[in-house]
Design a protein around this nucleic acid. Structure first.
Lengths: 218, 218, 218, 218
DNA sequence: CATGAATGAGCATTCATTCAT
DNA sequence: AATGAATGAATGCTCATTCAT
């Protein structure tokens, strides 16, 4: 507008705007994860972002709008996982271990993940609309499903266990370890945090998943 | 009055008080489960209970006090499970199925359970202090642990899988099904609610837990 | 009523009632002095009295009613001072000292006095009605006024100073010492509490009152 | 805008903010004086100021914060008195009259003064901290003290009366006249308000202060 | 007379959102 | 684009008073 040059010239104003939006986004992601969509305060987000409160409304419409974008981003980041997409038919026999390990990794690298998911589930999924989900639906899921189906046909995976159940089990094991560490640790009176404990649990969970709980399969 | 027994006469005043307190409790349990400790409104609880707001403070001290009592109650109700306590050494081979089934039952009969647990985990377990846990710590857990250990000695359960891991897996499977139904169902684009689906998933989860994911154990 | 005996028989019930009322009165006096008519809480008064809250309403009508009775009592106690009433014409030359000393005494024995007075003045005297004042109006004041007038006629007291001014000065000196100790002590950065300081100040105030501030009366 | 001077331009927004804060301050001063720190209502202050309630918290942090600023202001206004600071060694013989007259003036121009002081004394001085007092401690007090000491050395003022006592007497006379007018007037059954009465009392109080209560100093 | 439960108006404070510059 | 002031609907909690037994 003020600049006469046509094309993709980016004015300093625009550049600053992009930075401002990004800062809001990061602050929002952090605080929504920590305190939930209701507990996070707009003032707090603005302050953490070092930005004027009103900008949140200018860029995201409302607190809920920002929350929505944060949600989509977190889902998307989890969805496009290269390690899982790189699995091939040759990996079918070992894929369970890879998936579990990758899920553990995703949670560890993205500690907000289970928190945002938990809040969504508690709120009945009100944060995202149907439209949003089509964008999100993980690329790797279709890929894993294809491999699993092949595995079933080859007689590797059980025919009497659907892919949905298979994946949900892997989801739940990894998710629960992070999401319910506090209450479970208190209930069992056993420490669950820490790298060593985590690795041990992962190994044992995988053992059950592969071979079942029984010592000998008669 | 109605009772002829001397000594323990209960005045109508006391009876009303007990009812009032119970109504507050029920309303609190419902709303805390639905909206969380932060989202639930004191006015709303009072209105749902059909009770004067001030009574909440008279009986529970504060909103947090009511929340705490609700939490304890829900935990306690889950903790004292007769079906699990009734298991004997003869049931060791089938106990996994019983436990999973019982967990599913607990969640189904007590839909607030996973919600309150989720909120506690999100809030870092601030609702209950260390002291309360001793009361809560499930009686059945010690019982199951004893059976599991016997099972391990008898060569029924794997020696390389701890009871903690074993139980956490059963916890997570059942918990996750309820707590993450919404997001998972949308993510996988598969309906997860409904009696039939639920039973099917339970059966399949048990299959994996017992025999592992592989079709044949070579 | 229940008792058939005529005359002044006092039932145990009545006796208890008298005690209850007295306990409320004492608790009210203490708390009204400490926290004022607005700051004092009915619950607190009842608790301190060890009495059911409702009894306050039964015996005194309202919180304000209790406050009123407490006020009257405190005034009355200050009004009927034997030491001042015992002054005779022979004491005229020394009466100023006696009055000041007595006022100091009254304040010291009745620490609530200035506080209740202060609150009344701040509230515009809403605690007491016109009627009440006739009962209260101190007996000793008329007595002192008579002596002062005689003193003036005898040439002892100045003719150009009214009794009103004379007494108000004695009032203010003693009252202010107690009522404004805190702020004055901070303003002058000088400690004002303590027996020794108090005596010294009393002596010096009397010196001025008797002889004026100047070293020599030329 | 209106000013042509560069640099110090004040935006209309800032101007409005200053006005808003000032309005809150004035309303607070009025209502705190009238009803005390506990009796004054935040809603009422906001309404009287014609301002949104939340602005009080934005500008003063809390009701207590506003009260504190009001207190400091009232003290400060009383502390910096030009007439008293202008007194010189030549005025020593007449300074008592000037001080009393100035104190009467301060009270008359600042009817909130004794009220706020009274509340502070009743509340145990909780409104201000030690730090605040250092700012407040009157400039004129040190000045008067210096003059009084010189007066004592010159043989004008009595050696056996401390400055503290001297000033406290002048404080109390003037303060009491305003603070206890209501109860005293009722107790003595004499009207104390009104310009004429006030002047008469002032004159007579000064007479005593200068020459004592006795008609002749033998 | 005494008691404990109940009531309803009120109170300080917070917060998402909008306005004006 | 950015800022700081302003708004109004809550939000958890208190308290004088009344009711019912």
């Amino acid at each position: 507008m003020t600049s006469a040059s046509p094309g993709q010239t980016v004015s300093p104003k625009q550049r600053r705007a992009v930075r401002t939006k990004a800062r809001i986004f990061r602050a929002g992601a952090e605080l929504f994860a920590a305190k939930g969509p209701a507990g996070a305060r707009v003032d707090e987000i603005a302050q953490l972002a070092g930005v004027n409160k009103e900008r949140i409304y200018a860029y995201f419409g409302s607190k809920g709008g920002l929350y929505r974008e944060v949600l989509i981003d977190v889902y998307a980041r989890a969805a496009h996982n290269k390690r899982l997409l790189a699995l091939t038919e040759d990996d079918i026999e070992t894929m369970t271990g890879t998936v579990v390990d990758t899920f553990f990794e995703i949670h560890e690298e993205n500690p907000s993940f289970w928190r945002l998911l938990s809040w969504e589930n508690l709120n009945g999924g009100s944060g995202l609309r149907a439209i949003d989900w089509q964008q999100i639906r993980s690329a790797y899921i279709a890929h894993l499903q294809a491999l699993y189906t092949i595995g079933q046909k080859r007689g590797v995976f059980r025919a009497d266990v659907d892919f949905t159940t298979y994946l949900m089990l892997l989801f739940s094991m990894t998710y629960f370890y992070f999401s319910n560490r506090i209450t479970t640790s208190r209930l069992l009176d056993v420490p669950l945090s820490g790298e060593a404990v985590r690795r041990q649990i992962e190994t044992q969970l995988l053992t059950i998943t592969r071979h079942g709980v029984f010592a000998t399969e008669a």
